[in-house]
Computed example of a mutant assay.
Amino acid sequence: MAERQFMPCRIAVLTVSDTRSLAQDRSGDMLVARLEAAGHILADRAITPDDRAGIGEHLTRWIATPEIDVILSTGGTGLTGRDVTVEAHRDVYEKEIDAFATMFTLVSMQKIGTSAVQSRACAGVAGGTYLFALPGSPSACRDAWDEILGPQLDYRHKPCNFVEIMPRLDEHLRRK
């Protein structure tokens, strides 16, 4: 059987922060470096404040952009009052990828022990686009990419991966 060829995804990176600029965005930089090193395409990058409606508007705009396959957000997944990224993500999801949160917790447990319980990382699908909400720390972004997202966004990964089902994510929208 012939080996599968790599298929690059077009990935947008959204940093959620009231205080960071692009020059200070170490988590966003980490994700961009990882996705580009893997052969994917940076489709867009932005920073938005910790505001549920604003985050949701940004996600919705990117979901509607055909040139974006995947959205990675970083920041706002904790427990404090300003942490509203998870709620904004869930406002736009058509389906949640529940196992992502579980997998992220398992990976985090290996690195930070029981402190992993404080993360609310989540993932879902909307409009044929994958969305992943990651914590704001560079190490958490690195762990999520290296242990979960990198392999799952690689068409060559077996036995299955996110890329191979990408063409069918919006099939319910095409039905008559």
Results as ranks from 00 to 15, higher is better:
residue 1 M to H: 12
residue 4 R to A: 15
residue 5 Q to H: 12
residue 7 M to C: 14
residue 7 M to T: 15
residue 9 C to R: 15
residue 10 R to C: 06
residue 16 V to L: 04
residue 18 D to V: 04
residue 22 L to Y: 13
residue 25 D to W: 06
residue 27 S to Q: 09
residue 30 M to G: 10
residue 30 M to H: 12
residue 37 A to G: 11
residue 37 A to H: 08
residue 41 I to K: 13
residue 43 A to H: 09
residue 45 R to E: 09
residue 46 A to C: 14
residue 46 A to M: 13
residue 47 I to W: 03
residue 48 T to A: 15
residue 48 T to N: 06
residue 49 P to H: 01
residue 50 D to Q: 10
residue 51 D to V: 06
residue 52 R to V: 09
residue 53 A to P: 03
residue 54 G to Y: 00
residue 54 G to H: 05
residue 60 T to R: 14
residue 61 R to H: 13
residue 62 W to V: 10
residue 63 I to M: 10
residue 68 I to P: 06
residue 68 I to G: 07
residue 69 D to C: 03
residue 70 V to N: 05
residue 74 T to Q: 07
residue 74 T to V: 07
residue 82 R to H: 11
residue 83 D to G: 04
residue 83 D to S: 05
residue 84 V to C: 13
residue 88 A to Y: 03
residue 88 A to W: 03
residue 88 A to R: 01
residue 91 D to L: 11
residue 92 V to D: 07
residue 92 V to P: 02
residue 93 Y to P: 01
residue 93 Y to R: 00
residue 95 K to Q: 13
residue 97 I to S: 00
residue 99 A to W: 09
residue 101 A to S: 15
residue 102 T to L: 14
residue 108 S to A: 10
residue 116 A to R: 02
residue 119 S to L: 03
residue 120 R to V: 05
residue 122 C to V: 09
residue 122 C to R: 00
residue 122 C to L: 02
residue 125 V to P: 01
residue 130 Y to P: 00
residue 131 L to F: 00
residue 131 L to D: 06
residue 135 P to H: 02
residue 139 S to V: 12
residue 140 A to M: 04
residue 144 A to Y: 03
residue 146 D to I: 04
residue 147 E to Q: 15
residue 147 E to H: 11
residue 151 P to V: 05
residue 151 P to A: 01
residue 156 R to P: 10
residue 156 R to I: 11
residue 156 R to H: 08
residue 159 P to F: 08
residue 159 P to K: 10
residue 161 N to L: 08
residue 161 N to K: 09
residue 162 F to M: 15
residue 164 E to C: 12
residue 165 I to D: 05
residue 166 M to C: 09
residue 166 M to A: 15
residue 173 L to E: 13
residue 173 L to I: 06
residue 175 R to G: 13
